[in-house]
Design a protein around this nucleic acid. Sequence first.
RNA 1: GGAGGGGUUCCCGAGUGGCUAAAGGGAUCAGACUGUAAAUCUGACGCGCGAGCUUCGGUGGUUCGAAUCCACCCCCCUCCA
Length: 427
Amino acid sequence: MSATSIDIIEDLEARGLVSQMTSGDELRVFLNKGRTLYSGFDPTAESLHIGNLVPLLALRRFQMAGHRPIALVGGATGLIGDPSFKASERMLNSNDTVAIWVNRLKGQVSQFLDFDRGSSSALVVNNLDWVRDLNVLDFLRDVGKHFSVNAMIQKDSVRQRLDREGAGISYTEFSYMILQSYDFAELYSRHDCTLQIGGSDQWGNITGGIDLARRLHRAQVYGLTIPLVTKADGQKFGKTETGTVWLDANKTSPYAFYQFWLNAADADAYTFLRFFTFLSPAVIADIEVADKSARGRPEAQGILAKEVTRLVHGEEGLAAAERISGALFSGDLTSLSAKDCEQLKLDGLPSTALAGAARNIVDVLVDAGLAQSNKMAREFIANNAVSVNGQRVASDGFSLIADVALFGKYFIVRRGKKLFHLAYSTE
RNA sequence: GGAGGGGUUCCCGAGUGGCUAAAGGGAUCAGACUGUAAAUCUGACGCGCGAGCUUCGGUGGUUCGAAUCCACCCCCCUCCA
């Protein structure tokens, strides 16, 4: 294998991306040559979300450093459910559902990796391919025998499920760790995969795999975990009012995605730059210094939003997101042209068509999803939180009629400071 | 199989016959202040314009009246076998 171009561990450490690793110095030396590594992504939904982006980008960082990344999509493990640090047992998803999600995820992870890069070309695999044909007796005899239940119940990742009153864990989920361990051993023998990376919640599963690879194949393999992304104020990362921030443009538009990053707190922005972009730690440090010495609004969030949106949605997605953001936030809505309004719709600003000639604002808010109920809609209006085309809506009797429309048909409805919706008349 | 404990509004968690749409905390949302930040303060937080209606694992019952009492069922936890 070819020599690697940069010290990947050093880069990861400079970004704060290393949580734990097995035999640190040894691993550093081991990575002087191009190696094969993997990270797993379980199909728990039809799309990955921004939390998955950190290990995914880490795979790419390794690839850029000359290593061969394998993205494993958990067609098998997704049928079981990872109990690690989960408060309670989860519902099982059907085989069909998981199979569909596997395909979606395969497509998503592929976007971030290079499949034409010689000896470090990426690989996407599905663990169902080798787990499907295992039979129970062989599994219990050949694999299960290597696991000590005593050791398994000591793992932090399942402790709270065992200790906590009212929780508990099924044998199904308890077995998850064994399946993931088997994956590592299998990837070692199939692809000479010698390193597994994952979120820090995966430490227990990863070390399980290291032990199994040694026992089954007398192999020395390694593990490295990445810190889970946390926010400075302690709140959960990756959620907005509308829910999870997905990588799928159909579930979270490039515009919403861009806005998510733009709204990062100052205290988080530089950490996120290190975690979610390929800007070098030195450049990021410069940005931070410049922001600190400047008054007013920092640059970091803008750079962050631009970089990550480009990474996930490409130049076109970024351009659309910036067009909408510029139009809505940088001043006078009435200065928009008819063409601009049409473009907002094309760019993915949430929009609805209005059937009748005049529509009551309360109905519009509810239909557009800007309010959950008529009652909430009225409350927003009473709180002065609603405007149409830049004009405060003073009463819940307000109607969207041609007189207040832009170009006779467009209504830019705003609820709160940041939530916009385009309603347009089809008459 | 036996004994005990438990399932309350998004989450945690009080409530053990009317004063309870249901304490308190968290999360979330809005307003003010700002920088589409943080912190802080104020308000909202089942549905309904409203009279009111629908909620406390499920079903049936007792009662003028139940989340609270009874019966059966489902699910979870702990201990014993």
